[in-house]
Design a protein around this nucleic acid. Structure first.
Lengths: 209, 209
DNA sequence: TATCAATGTTGACTGAGTACAAGTTTTGAC
DNA sequence: GTCAAAACTTGTACTCAGTCAACATTGATA
């Protein structure tokens, strides 16, 4: 890796670190991009060179991994393993290591970011978009695998919807102050219930009497 | 309704109509709010009084109905009818009348709006947010109906995900130039396949051999 | 008709994002 | 080591969304 690329990474990191520090300290909307640039010893234009929008200063790292690799895993499922089974296995593994995309990461860093994003509408909006794109990507992946089968795209949306739902439910309790270890058992139960539902269907759930 | 309220509605409509006309003519990003205000014979501030953001000029009407009432219908399902059955019945009814939230509305007006929204990232982003909020609203509705049952929230996300997916699939063909009548039969098939999937589960769908 | 409260207007302001031209630094070839 | 091309950065100046505060207007009400 040449000097140029190392410097770029360094600059990118400097901008990102400065931004996060300022945002956590004073809130996303109360910090201007110009201030971030000043803190990172860089011009405003350079900030926009590295991060197309202010929101990307916070969400770019999440976007890079989060659902992207979660979904790639599905393409690498084991022989004899169904789509739902592979997804369940992966999600449970992530629960076990308290991966942040399960909502079970209660580290100070994760909680701070959570707070920042949840308290800023424009960041929430951007996060939703990222999730929708992740779903669309997975849909195309599965449609390619079984062309013409309408169920592929539907399965994609069901799986991402479930992941998202489980994350929301877990996050809710973490935000309310419970530790990830305290929530873990319930999270596993909820996940299994969810994947069971996906596997065997909603049936006559919630039939009005 | 007093004169005052009638005037407000009138002003709102004037702004909205002027905005849509200009956006369709020249594109969302190529028209400034100031121009919309001028066209509607109103000040820029007044535009923002009625529509909090520029995107709302396009999407506020959709937000008001679209998924909102679609979901309220679920709360009013018939005795003996399951959640999935009620959702299926409602969606098929909407397909039959080519409701725009099924993606089967090929009227010129709907196609124009579709084009406008799809071609404008900020409008797409806003649309996603609206959908996510609709899902969250339905989830709370169902959770209230069966408290403590994790499946309620999951069912909510499954149902909205399916509706969205079906809409995407139908819209894709409409955009490619097919008429809604030509797509209808397939749309019904796809919808039934989707709701069957929800009812009976994905099982071992897409098991790797 | 006089008054009140809601609504609309005005103009000035902040801050995100863009365009452009002019530096500055790294790279690669010689 | 030198030098030109490519890549990166910067300053300036701009557009436009959205906010704020003070003032003007007008429908409702007594």
């Amino acid at each position: 890796m040449g000097l140029r690329e190392r410097k770029k990474l360094q600059t990118r990191r400097a901008i990102h670190d400065a931004a996060i520090a300022l945002f956590l300290e004073r809130g996303f909307d109360e910090v201007s991009v110009a201030e971030v640039a000043a803190a990172a010893q860089v011009s405003k234009m350079t900030v926009f060179n590295y991060f197309p929008t202010k929101e990307d200063l916070v969400l770019a790292p999440l976007e890079e991994q989060m659902y992207a690799d979660a979904m790639r895993v599905l393409g690498e499922r084991r022989p004899g393993e169904s789509l739902v089974a592979a997804s369940r296995r992966e999600f449970l593994a992530r629960l076990e290591r308290r991966s942040s995309d399960t909502g079970l990461d209660d580290s100070a860093a994760a909680m701070n970011m959570l707070h920042l994003v949840r308290g800023t509408p424009s960041l929430m909006g951007r996060l939703f978009m990222i999730q929708v794109f992740a779903e669309e990507r997975l849909a195309r992946l599965l449609e390619a695998e079984s062309p013409g089968d309408i169920r592929a795209g539907i399965a994609a949306s069901q799986l991402t919807a479930l992941w998202r739902r489980l994350q929301v439910v877990n996050t809710r309790r973490i935000v309310e102050g419970e530790s990830s270890d305290a929530v873990y058992a319930d999270a596993v139960r909820a996940a299994n219930a969810g994947f069971d539902l996906l596997e065997h269907g909603l049936g006559d759930f919630l039939t009005r009497s």
